[in-house]
Design a protein around this nucleic acid. Sequence first.
DNA 1: ATAAACTTTCAATAATTATTGAAAGTTTAA
DNA 2: TTAAACTTTCAATAATTATTGAAAGTTTAT
Lengths: 167, 167
Amino acid sequence: MNYDDAKMKFVSTWGSLGSLWGINKAMAQIQALLFISIKPLSMEDIMADLHISRGNTSMNLRQLMDWGIVTKEIIPGERKEYFTTEKDVQELARIIAKERSRREIQPVIKVLKEVSSITDDGTEKTKELIKQTKALHDLTQTADDMINKLVNQKQNWITKSVLKLFK
Amino acid sequence: MNYDDAKMKFVSTWGSLGSLWGINKAMAQIQALLFISIKPLSMEDIMADLHISRGNTSMNLRQLMDWGIVTKEIIPGERKEYFTTEKDVQELARIIAKERSRREIQPVIKVLKEVSSITDDGTEKTKELIKQTKALHDLTQTADDMINKLVNQKQNWITKSVLKLFK
DNA sequence: ATAAACTTTCAATAATTATTGAAAGTTTAA
DNA sequence: TTAAACTTTCAATAATTATTGAAAGTTTAT
């Protein structure tokens, strides 16, 4: 496999994986492109490489910046804006996990807490609803805590040492 | 909040959360409904409660069974089929994590390995592609291992003890 | 102040994904 | 074997989500 094939394969795989980390295809592809680029890219560069429109590129770059994954780079003497992505995978994972937690997990935890806190009217179905949503709340909360704590460790040794525990 | 409101809120929240664990809305809602039900439900029950068609119910129940989350229950003397879901959240999490790993993470790991194994032609861009996809491969692999190992522990004490490590 | 170079916005459209409903299929009871 | 009771399938349709492209907006240089 040559460079161009490998690049294409990586970009499109990462793109279709977007759903796994909760973003759309174009957004994931732009990030992938920047991730393996050796220099900042302009909107033109991205449009040409990915064959997507200017509007699409602009909107998705903005979203990536909102996530804190991509930043504008000003190149002196250049009129165009250039973009780069976080290049360190650990840091990337940290940002993504934090954002997903904030955007998706926290709201669900809130609802689960609410639902599991209704007053017990003594009926079996109410008891079951409370019991099950409480269990889900605890699990979600625990998982969320773990993800955040794991991902906040900047050093890799923690990951390794935890892994050892389970080997 | 009364029982019916709480039930509705839970079912619809869990439904819209479907995307987070990679399944569609109806599928997640059916699972949610079964999860808080005190007895197995028939297709009719589910259709009526969720206001969805017979075809939709049938297809999504089949998918939930493929995932291994829902099972058919034969009730003696009854002609209809009844359905139940796994009620233990830990076990539920185990099944879901395992399936997602198998369906989505493994294929990506495979591609990352492939791409990061192209022959180094000495150019800077190839070096960068190899370096970055390798880093992504390692991270994804480590995360996948951790998820699987954590989730395979049936007892909750492991989770608690890991958590303590990071407090 | 003007115009060129560039970016953003957003209504229209395309692509994708979910849902329906009715016909075909299956199982059970008599 | 027939018919009633039930489930599955799948082409048509609806709903949702992503993408385009051109007009409007912004910035910079002269």
